[in-house]
């Protein structure tokens, strides 16, 4: 079982709704995130330039570095759903998992002094609902489900996409399960490791 979110960047309009839906649903502190929408570009030669948006959250790595480094087992893979989660009661706040996450998508909860991250909205999916960010996505760009189950929304979205349009964030052996769809007719996918910038704006190398 590989529960994950697939984001169709051909449809994503960078509207921040998934970010807000997530913060409202999970009551996340100001300055912290489980999900954040990045802008990539524009890059290329004016006026033939390209740009896309990249909503990022825990990528549900199959070989999750955060779980490997966690000394207490607070970062763990749920035996029932295979979802990578944090058991805040076990967390000692050593932040190794934050260092180990290749994407920096874990959050420090200042108040409780523990690490948190996207839970794939397990409290909603357990009741058959969609994650908040998926349900409310104005672009109809987010798909949730088990990638090993071909009938899930996420699998169907991937199956419908051209092979060359399916991407993951730069994989350093952690095998992110989250997939992004971006067709070349809109923009050239950039390896996430080649992206740099400040705040929410990211550029590819050399721009």
């Amino acid at each position: 079982m590989r529960n994950a979110i697939v984001v169709d960047l051909d449809r994503c309009s960078g509207c921040f709704s998934c970010e807000i839906a997530c913060k409202m649903e999970n009551g996340i502190a100001l300055g912290s995130y489980y999900n954040k929408v990045m802008t990539v570009g524009p890059f290329g030669d004016f006026p033939h330039i390209q740009q896309y948006f990249l909503p990022v959250h825990c990528q549900q790595c199959e070989n999750a570095p955060c779980v490997h480094v966690c000394p207490t087992g607070a970062s763990y893979r749920d035996p029932d759903t295979n979802v990578v989660l944090v058991d805040k009661a076990k967390c000692i706040g050593c932040k190794y998992c934050m260092m180990a996450c290749p994407y920096g998508v874990r959050s420090w909860n200042k108040e409780e002094r523990v690490v948190e991250k996207c839970t794939l909205c397990g409290h909603l999916t357990a009741q058959g609902d969609l994650p908040a960010c998926v349900h409310n996505c104005p672009g109809g760009a987010r798909f949730y489900g088990d990638l090993d189950d071909p009938t899930s929304d996420a699998s169907k979205a991937l199956a419908a996409a051209e092979k060359s349009a399916v991407h993951t964030l730069t994989d350093v052996g952690n095998k992110p399960a989250t997939h992004y769809i971006l067709s070349e007719r809109y923009a050239q996918w950039q390896e996430s490791k080649d992206l740099a910038g400040s705040g929410r704006y990211m550029q590819k190398d050399g721009e």
């Binding site: 920096g104 959050s107 420090w108």
Partner: peptide, 12 residues
């Protein structure tokens, strides 16, 4: 010197 693959949230 830390350089992560990405540090999207910039929180570390």
């Amino acid at each position: 010197a830390s350089v992560t693959v990405n540090n999207f949230f910039g929180l570390l």
